[in-house]
Simulated assay, not measured.
Amino acid sequence: MTYAKAFIVSVYCLVFIVGTFGNAIVIIIMRSKRKSNRLVDVFITHLAIADLVFLLTLPLWAVSTALDHHWLFGEGLCKMCSYIVVVNMYSGIFFLTCMSIDRYVAIVLSVKYGYLRSRRCAVITSLVIWTLSLALGLPTLSFRHMVQVDDNGKWVCSEVNMPSRNIFALVTSFIAFVLPLGIITVCYCSVGIKLYRHFDRIRKEERKKRKSIKIGFWIVTMFILSWLPYNVLKTTDVFVQSSTFQASCDTQESVSKGILLFTCLAFVNSCVNPIVYLVFDRYFRKSLFQLLPCQAAKRLKAHCSTSLSDSIRSQRRNSSFYKEKETTFTAAKISS
């Protein structure tokens, strides 16, 4: 195994460990905030679910990469794992778009369209996003196959090159990446302009909104940095494979290697969001520390010491009471 493949496999293993633990913690903490009315919490929960489901497939991709992309797990898992990857990408960008729209409505259109930020609306929006993401991913089940690449029995999980696949790739790239990216940019630019104009009059509630905007901004930035290079190279690969322009063998090889590298970068995004919450969200940090075993032990110890102190105080009060009663009885006996 070359150094590059060893590095990618190591990254996959690290992403799987950190991402699985981190996103599970995010879901637990968000579920504990049932009384919270923040719509962004609904979208954060669904983002974590999407990443967690994808991370379950990551060990299979790590094994395949370690074996020079030889796929051992059959065509069914080849299709399903590829399907989960694209659904994760689509749902991720759609939920981030909804988060940016939510911030735009909350700050720029706070009075006019506040009804759009109801929890019921957020749940319906989440269901629509999942339905759309699952539907957009369906063609992947048709395009992905196990392909034999040599006479030594090496099979890879790859997309079959056909005109319909190329057209679909370009259309979905626009619908599920370029268009949402434009909406996110417009929303956050508008929010930034509004906050800048009213910076001196920001109230305490608005400062809380600024913190959530900062979290959303970093989540979006990490998503773009992770997935933009992959989408650019995938679009380039579509034109190369469709012979739209003549590309040399070196160019085709460079594009293929670039896709492998930037696929790794895209997969890293699944463990980034919990780290962003840990750095910028005080409530998340506090809840995480409360969930840690050492913190649980401290709470148990504090509870035991409190109970012991209460018991000692109770015993002292009882002892003082009986001593006082005995003194009173002795004094009464002497006087009689």
Score class of each variant (00 low, 15 high):
Met1Pro: 05
Met1Gly: 10
Ala4Cys: 09
Ala6Ser: 15
Ile8Trp: 08
Ser10Cys: 09
Val11Pro: 05
Phe16Lys: 05
Ile17Ala: 15
Val18Asp: 02
Thr20Gln: 01
Gly22Tyr: 02
Asn23Lys: 07
Ala24Ile: 07
Met30Ser: 03
Met30Asp: 02
Lys35His: 11
Ser36Val: 04
Phe43Pro: 00
Leu52Thr: 05
Pro59Ser: 08
Leu67His: 06
Leu67Arg: 12
Phe73Glu: 15
Gly76Met: 05
Met80Arg: 15
Cys81Arg: 13
Val85Ser: 09
Tyr90Thr: 15
Tyr90Ala: 06
Gly92Trp: 01
Thr97Val: 08
Cys98Arg: 08
Met99Pro: 03
Ser100Asp: 12
Ser100Phe: 08
Arg103Ser: 10
Val105Phe: 06
Val105Ala: 07
Ile107Arg: 01
Ser110Tyr: 11
Tyr115Arg: 07
Arg117Gly: 02
Cys121Glu: 06
Ala122Met: 00
Val123His: 02
Thr125Gly: 01
Ser126Arg: 04
Leu127Phe: 10
Thr131Asn: 08
Thr131Glu: 07
Leu132Ser: 14
Ser133Gln: 09
Leu134Gln: 08
Thr140Gly: 13
Phe143Val: 03
His145Gln: 15
Gln148Cys: 04
Val149Arg: 06
Asp150Met: 07
Asn152Ala: 06
Gly153His: 11
Val156Ile: 13
Cys157Ser: 14
Cys157Glu: 02
Cys157His: 11
Cys157Tyr: 13
Glu159Trp: 03
Asn161His: 08
Pro163Ser: 08
Ser164Trp: 12
Phe168Ser: 13
Ala169Gln: 03
Ala169Leu: 01
Ala169Tyr: 01
Leu170Ala: 04
Ser173Trp: 10
Ile183Pro: 00
Ile184Gln: 01
Ser190Arg: 10
Ser190Asp: 05
Lys194Met: 08
Leu195His: 04
Tyr196Asn: 01
Arg197Ala: 14
His198Tyr: 14
Ile202Asp: 03
Lys204Phe: 04
Arg207Lys: 03
Lys209Pro: 00
Lys209Met: 03
Arg210Gly: 05
Lys211Ala: 12
Ile213His: 02
Ile219Gln: 00
Val220Trp: 03
Val220Leu: 08
Thr235Lys: 00
Asp237Gln: 10
Ser243Pro: 00
Phe245Tyr: 12
Gln246Glu: 14
Ser248Ile: 10
Glu253Cys: 10
Thr263Lys: 03
Ala266Ser: 12
Phe267Thr: 04
Phe267Glu: 04
Ser270Trp: 12
Ser270Pro: 13
Val272Leu: 05
Ile275Asp: 01
Val276Asn: 02
Phe280Pro: 00
Phe280Met: 02
Tyr283Pro: 00
Phe284Cys: 03
Arg285Tyr: 09
Leu291Lys: 14
Pro293Asp: 13
Pro293Thr: 13
Gln295Arg: 13
Ala297Met: 11
Lys301Gly: 06
Ala302Ile: 04
Cys304Lys: 11
Thr306Ala: 11
Ser307Glu: 07
Ile312Pro: 00
Arg313Asn: 03
Ser314Gly: 14
Arg316Asp: 07
Ser320Met: 11
Lys323Ser: 11
Glu326Ile: 11
Thr328Gly: 05
Ala331Arg: 12
Ala332Trp: 12
Lys333Thr: 13
